[in-house]
Design a binder for these strands. Structure first.
Lengths: 241, 241
DNA sequence: CGACGCATTGATCGCGCTCAAATGTCGTGG
DNA sequence: CCACGACATTTGAGCGCGATCAATGCGTCG
């Protein structure tokens, strides 16, 4: 995470994607596609690279492309005229961008660190989608899953306390279960605050509190270990996600 | 709204739906289906009736059915162990219920007032969906639209003030534009508060303030008129919805 | 070494919540 | 038609959580 891409075989933007050898295919919408279909998808896709902070797509602008993340992390967000921001989600390698769009994009997508994407022109992608039931079915599955997550976040934003929000966030980041591995935070405190509907100060104070209470261990700001997962789970009012 | 169903030709629950004459078809997922496909859909659907407060589907339970609302209003909500509630949305006639489900329902759906539904057994519906591209495409469209709305609501819940939330809510309810028609609120103050992430007191106070400021007119609690739509729109920090 | 950006910590403020009471609405039965 | 009770809504008083304002710490880069 916060992956510095090995700059050795620097991919030229615009080149056709190599789906067969793509490392994130299993996690992506292109998973399970018959080989022929995969090639048709590859034929309309190009590689796009973005640097840190670069805008991949902009809220309100015509939805010209769909994207699939092949490396790096992306922040999805909306903002109010006066600058207040809400991060609606973070996207990881394998995630699909553009589902939540009508004719115009519904959110802005900004690269956190360097990001590599598979770009699909909207019209050609939609045509192909209609021709490939497996693909459309997969997209529906992804959209349904996103909806479930969105509803869970409405509960968090509408009804949870600051402690509950931060605890929920940490648990969502944590690997599925059991593991007491290190969690790397690719995003800043500002991103986390805007994701949880809090301020950076409250996020920072809450993390400090969890550290004092020996629930987490955090030697550097963007790297932490869940020490007392059960305690956090209790605080988070963990639901059935 | 809060429609008292004319009890004259009381439909017997369980009977096969009459899609051809269905009044909400144009607004539903079954719109635009070729006639033959519509009949196949009708053949797996049954009519279900629910009384006020009745639970249509329950968060966390196995997702056995999908539903389409033919009349009445439905509250979609999630709750925390201690009873705090978040209404994730209100559903109207023509809306589809169950999209935001994995194997288990992601939210609870409760009837506000009497409700009539078209019920589709999950497995049979999914089989049919895979056979009818028009249907699956339509579902993907609905899911995408729901996602856009969900993200708008995250912005509201995470970043808007009480005044902005209530103003946004009123504008969302209002007919598309121009009209200064009467808005009927089928839901209670508690529902509105749980929808906006506020308390009933704050909702009530804010509505009273809008009335004092001559932005709305409200003679009875569940019926109001937008007097100053532009003012409300300014307050709502209206975005590109 | 200083400048910058990000995170942490402290002090204080205010929006929206909580607790409490009054008022309004509506259905029911005399 | 009115009296009554149950329940929803409105209004008031005071408080507390999280925001705001401000200062300090800390790591990175020129």
């Amino acid at each position: 995470m916060s992956v510095v891409i090995p700059v050795v075989p620097r991919i030229v933007a615009g080149r056709i994607a190599h789906c067969e050898s793509c490392g994130v295919r299993a996690r992506s919408v292109c998973a399970n596609l018959p080989e022929g279909d995969l090639m048709r998808l590859a034929s309309i896709s190009t590689v796009r690279q973005c640097g840190p902070g670069e805008v991949i797509m902009m809220e309100g602008e015509p939805a010209a492309s769909y994207h699939n993340i092949t490396s790096g992390f992306v922040r999805l967000h909306k903002s109010l005229p006066d600058g207040r921001e809400q991060v609606t989600g973070f996207a990881r390698p394998g995630d699909f961008l553009g589902l939540a769009s009508e004719d115009n994009y519904g959110v802005t997508a900004t690269a956190i660190g360097p990001v590599t994407l598979c770009r699909f022109p909207r019209d050609r992608f939609r045509t192909l989608m209609h021709a490939l039931p497996t693909l459309e079915d997969r997209l529906l599955g992804v959209a349904s899953h996103e909806l479930v997550i969105a509803q869970e976040r409405m509960l968090l934003l509408g009804r949870k306390t600051a402690r509950e929000r931060v605890a929920s966030f940490l648990l969502d980041l944590a690997p599925p279960c059991g593991e007491t591995g290190v969690i790397l935070l690719p995003m800043t405190r500002t991103d986390i605050a805007d994701y949880l509907g809090l301020t950076i100060e409250t996020v920072s104070r809450t993390l400090s509190a969890f550290r004092r209470e020996k629930r987490i261990d955090m030697k550097v700001p963007n790297q932490l270990v869940l020490v007392d997962r059960n305690g956090l789970s209790r605080i988070a009012q963990a639901s059935a996600l």
